[in-house]
Amino acid sequence: MYNPINYLITLRVVGKNKPFIIFIISGEFYVKKLSEELEGAGFRVQGFEKESLALKFLEKNNVQGVFLTNHSLEKSKSLVEEIKKTGNPAALFCSQTQCSPENIAELLNLGCDEFFLKTCPDVEIIARIKAVFRRSDRSKNRQIAANIHLDTDQFNFCGAAINPGHLEIIFDEKNKSKLGKKELGIIYYLASNPGVVISRNSLIHAVWGAHADTRSRSVDQYITKIRVLFEKYAEGLGSLRTLHGIGYWYDAKTLNKKKVNS
């Protein structure tokens, strides 16, 4: 009998170049059987029961699809909104035991790419998932943020090496950390514009896109996350100044000292 762990389920993770789908699970439903069918069809699959873990995973990893299984209508709607906030462009799939045509339409209008009833055969579900990927080409999506993609060359920022392909910042051989996609986009934009005043609006448009509806406070929160990393590994981020009411100024000539662990 399928007995999922109550916080994280690793169903199968093989083949790095295969399209990656995560399940956010409510109850057993038919996840195990469907995941095995998806794996056989050429997908990687991982499941989460804790929504908070799934959302954090989406912020920092390149995922092509998210499958919401057997949540209530209101919970599904809430999750769709939260997933969109992560900035991950993954396709969204919802599945419920029963749902009215009006509610299905509501979920699709919110941003779901496909909806499945429990009675839908696995072979049809997989075919429709593949059709979504063909239409959107999300399975080949290499974009991290509006201004950077996974194939961007490694670059330096304040004495640390940034590896976009691994979503990683490397301070030295022993100290490295994963970077969220928006943090990586912000760092890349700062590194590309040294010695100039960068307004919050220009940073938002560069990283989130020209039509993004993002508040300055959100940008400050991401900058804080970056500063915390440098406080932990490099004794601060002295080369990045906050210009209150204006934006930021990055001085590439000011190098941060590496933190010496006692």
Rank of each mutant, 00 (worst) to 15 (best):
N6P: 11
R12C: 14
V13L: 13
G15S: 06
N17L: 13
I22Y: 12
G27H: 11
G27A: 13
Y30M: 01
V31Q: 08
S35R: 01
E37V: 00
L38G: 00
G40H: 01
G47F: 12
G47K: 10
F48A: 11
S52Y: 05
S52I: 13
S52D: 15
L55Q: 08
K56I: 05
F57R: 03
F57Y: 15
L58H: 12
H71T: 11
S72T: 14
E74Q: 10
E82G: 02
K84Y: 03
K85Y: 10
G87I: 06
N88E: 03
F93D: 06
C94Y: 01
T97L: 10
Q98E: 12
Q98G: 10
A105T: 09
F115Q: 02
F115H: 14
L117M: 08
L117K: 12
I126F: 00
A127T: 02
A131G: 00
V132R: 11
R135K: 15
R138G: 09
R138F: 13
Q143N: 11
A145S: 14
I148M: 04
L150V: 08
T152D: 06
F155N: 00
G159H: 00
A160S: 07
I162H: 04
E168N: 08
I169E: 01
K174M: 05
G180S: 13
G180R: 05
I187D: 03
L190E: 03
V207N: 06
D213I: 09
R215E: 13
R215P: 02
S216M: 02
S218Q: 12
Y222E: 14
Y222T: 06
K225E: 12
I226A: 07
K232T: 15
A234S: 11
E235R: 03
S239I: 05
T242C: 09
W249A: 09
D251Y: 12
K253V: 14
K259E: 09
S262N: 10
